[in-house]
Every structure is written in structure tokens, then in C-alpha cells.
Amino acid sequence: MAFLLRRLGFYFGAFFVAITLNFLIPRLMPGDPATRILLSLRGKLRPDQIDAIRKTYGFSGSLWDQYLQYLWRLAHFDFGISTVNFPEPTASLLFYAAGWTLVLVGAATTLSFGIGITMGIWSAWRRGGFFDTFFTPINVMLNAFTPAVVALLLWYAFTMQWPIFPLGRAHEMNLTPGFNLETLLSVAWHAVLPVASIVIVSFGAWHLGMRNTMINLLNEDFVLLAKAKGLSDRRIRNRYVARNAILPQITSLALSIGFVLGGAFITEVVFNYPGLGKFTLNAIQTRDYSFIQAQLILLTMSVLVANLASDVLNVILDPRLRSAGRA
């Protein structure tokens, strides 16, 4: 418990750093941020609205007042008004987009973690063998093929060259979303390529991470003892080595969510998928600062929650942490 409380404290600290950065960045850049934002609303406003907007965006008063105001609004999930979809509140747009990104990132992470870990176990076990010698470097190289390139490649191959998969979007246009088989199938079908491109550029990291951790563990005395006991290879591999090696991977998994989100952003742009990435791109092009800033806060929050979850999981899986808390 003490361990988890300490982590929780840290996450609050980290979150605070993030929102403060988010607050400071626009105010530290040259030029008046308010004017900039107003500029992006050009033509949409009557003069009497300008002052109100200035207030709404929190660009009036001393820096300290602004900061307090900013925190107050954050606490109410008030991210301001979207300048693109004016006067839609940014929050509703944000949560709509986040839902779709969650679909992509959730599916992609599960798959790539599963594939990578399985391959890592296998190649560590037969290290120096054919699979290990060839596929470990290849998979890790895939990891360095930026998502932009892989997504473009898949998109070109499977929607243009061999039009098997849909060109974009999250589901068929004429579909009324709801929880039925038709919707789920359509969503799954539309997610295949985006998910595949995220998986392709990310599973290599799990493969390598699990492999290297396992290889280091294989040199431990407790593995030798397991072997000396005459246990079957399968039991040694799964219960005595992989079981321990998975713990650090869970921690990295949570830390990597930020990277995976990055990949998802690019992929959404290529596949015209209505997630955070695509909306953020729109926001960048139209300088919709409220959305740009809001996505950072939302994503920071999700990454921190993911990390907390991984801590809880680690405590459940690692008896050493459990009693460290008790002490």
C-alpha cells in the first residue's frame, strides 16, 4: 500500500507538472496568445464577443490569476470552446475523438504486446537459433520504420492496389452506431489496417525487451536450480523465467503508451480515422489551440492512469513489492 501511495503521489506531481507546462507554453511564446487565438476566430466574432472570449480563454488578469482560473476550469473539464467547430465546447469533441483512439490503441497495444512477448519468449528460449537470429533484428528494425511510412504503405497496398479494406473512417457512413453485431463488425473491419500499422511498428520493442530480459534471467541461479530439479522445459520457461521477465515489461508497457499514442496519431491521419490524431491535425491546421492543449491534458491523464494500473498489476504479481508495502 505504501508503495502505491507513493506512486500515486508521484503521478499527482507529474500531472501538475504537465498542466503547468501546458499553461506556460502559450504564455512564454513570443506574441500575445490571446490575439493569436482571436486571429484564428477571425470573421466569426462580433466585437462585443471578443472581450468575453478573452475572459473565457483565461488571458486576462495577472499571470497568477490566470493560473488559478485555468486550474479552476480544468477541475470542471472545461477546456474552452473549439474554434473550428465553433461554438462547440472542446470537451465534447475531445471525448468523441478519444473514444475512437481508445479503440485503436487498445486493440493495437493488446496485439502487439501479445505478439511481441510470445516471440520474445520463443527467441530467448532458442537464442542463437534460426528464429532468434533472423527475426529478432528484423522485428526490431520494423520498430524503426516510422508509423507514417508503414501506414502509408499498408494504405496504398490494401486500399488502392488491392482494395480489400475500406479507405478510411471508423465505420460505414450510413450506419447508426449502437451495440449490435453489424456495428461491431464494421468498426472491426475499419480498424484492421490502422491497428495493423501500429502493431507492425511496435511489437518489435516487446520482442526485444522480453528476449533480453529472459536471456539475462536464464543466467540466474534460480533458473539453474529449476533445471537441476528436472522440471520440464515448458515449466521452466513459462513458470520460472517468463513469469519473472514479464514484470519489467508491464512497467515499460505503461511507459510506452505515450509512444503508442504518437503512432496512433499518425496512423489516424493516414487512414482518416476520427480519433484524437486526426482532430489534432485539424486543430493544428486551423490553430485551434484549445483543442491542442486539451489533448495534451487528456493524454497525460490517460498515460498516468495506465502507469498507476501497471503499478497495481506489479504489486499483485510481485510478492516483493507487496511486502515492501507492508514493512
Binding site: 540466474e220 541461479d221 534460480f222 539453474l224 536450480l225 529449476a226 533445471k227 537441476a228 530439479k229 528436472g230 522440471l231 515449466r235 513458470r239 520460472y240 513469469r243 519473472n244 514484470l247 504479481l317 510481485d318 510478492p319 516483493r320
Partner: peptide
């Protein structure tokens, strides 16, 4: 041959037991 004919006691029991498995299971496994 292993364990039922020849067993082993390692130098450092610190590292010879798997830290995330109950000792009962490690004995029963053998």
C-alpha cells in the same frame, strides 16, 4: 538423473530461489 539421483545446493540461496514463487510450490515442483 536430475534431482532424484543428484541434487544441488547452490552457493547463494538468495538467488537460488525464484523470488516470485512460493517456497512450497518450488519444493512441490521438484
Amino acid at each position: 538423473y536430475r534431482w532424484s539421483e543428484v541434487s544441488f545446493v547452490f552457493q547463494s540461496a538468495m538467488n537460488a530461489l525464484n523470488p516470485v514463487i512460493k517456497v512450497s510450490e518450488q519444493i512441490e515442483d521438484a
